[in-house]
Amino acid sequence: DEDELTGILKKLSLEKYQPIFEEQEVDMEAFLTLTDGDLKELGIKTDGSRQQILAAISELNAG
């Protein structure tokens, strides 16, 4: 699971946030449920980064 998540972050060039997800024990299943508020709480402060992550999440959820 973590590897898939790392792959997604790398694709977005946001792998610098990978340790945050690891630290908070966010797995792929949890990742797919994250909201903008969750990402802010995790410490992802950049709007653009959150938008990219949320776009990836909705794409993955759309299947």
Rank of each mutant, 00 (worst) to 15 (best):
D1I: 15
D1F: 06
D1L: 15
E2W: 15
E2C: 15
E2N: 14
D3A: 09
D3W: 11
E4W: 02
E4A: 03
E4V: 08
E4D: 06
L5V: 09
L5A: 00
L5R: 01
L5P: 03
G7V: 08
G7F: 13
G7R: 15
G7Y: 12
G7D: 14
I8W: 09
I8Y: 09
I8R: 07
L9H: 00
L9I: 01
L9G: 00
K10W: 00
K10M: 05
K10D: 02
K10V: 02
K10S: 09
K10R: 06
K11S: 06
K11M: 08
K11L: 05
L12G: 00
L12K: 07
S13F: 02
S13I: 08
S13C: 12
S13V: 03
S13T: 10
L14D: 01
L14H: 00
L14S: 00
L14A: 00
L14W: 00
E15S: 09
E15G: 04
E15D: 09
E15T: 08
K16Q: 07
K16F: 06
K16A: 15
K16S: 11
K16C: 11
Y17D: 06
Q18V: 10
Q18Y: 03
Q18K: 14
P19M: 13
P19A: 11
P19C: 07
P19K: 05
I20K: 11
I20A: 10
I20S: 06
I20C: 14
F21L: 08
F21Q: 01
F21K: 03
E22L: 09
E22Y: 08
E22W: 01
E23N: 09
E23Q: 09
E23F: 01
Q24C: 08
Q24D: 05
E25L: 06
E25Q: 08
E25V: 08
E25T: 05
V26C: 05
D27R: 08
D27C: 05
D27N: 13
D27E: 06
M28I: 08
M28F: 10
M28R: 09
M28Q: 07
E29N: 06
A30E: 11
A30N: 12
A30P: 01
F31E: 05
F31R: 04
L32F: 07
L32D: 05
L32E: 07
T33P: 01
T33L: 07
L34T: 03
L34A: 05
L34G: 03
T35H: 06
T35G: 08
D36I: 02
D36K: 04
D36N: 07
D36F: 00
G37L: 12
G37Y: 10
G37P: 13
G37E: 13
D38L: 00
D38F: 00
L39W: 00
L39Q: 02
L39A: 02
L39S: 01
K40H: 07
K40N: 09
K40P: 01
K40G: 06
E41K: 10
E41G: 11
E41H: 12
E41N: 12
L42F: 09
L42M: 14
L42S: 06
G43F: 03
I44C: 04
I44V: 14
K45I: 05
K45D: 15
T46G: 13
T46N: 09
D47V: 12
D47M: 10
D47G: 09
G48S: 14
G48Y: 06
G48A: 12
G48T: 15
G48Q: 13
S49Q: 13
S49K: 09
R50M: 01
R50Q: 02
R50W: 01
Q51W: 01
Q51D: 11
Q52S: 10
Q52T: 08
Q52L: 10
Q52V: 07
I53R: 03
I53Y: 00
I53M: 12
L54F: 01
L54S: 07
A56K: 08
A56Q: 10
A56D: 09
A56S: 09
I57T: 08
S58A: 14
S58T: 12
S58E: 14
S58C: 07
S58G: 14
S58P: 01
E59G: 11
E59W: 05
E59H: 14
L60P: 02
N61C: 06
N61T: 13
A62Q: 10
A62H: 11
A62F: 06
A62R: 12
A62M: 08
A62D: 14
A62K: 07
A62L: 09
G63D: 07
G63N: 07
G63V: 10
G63I: 09
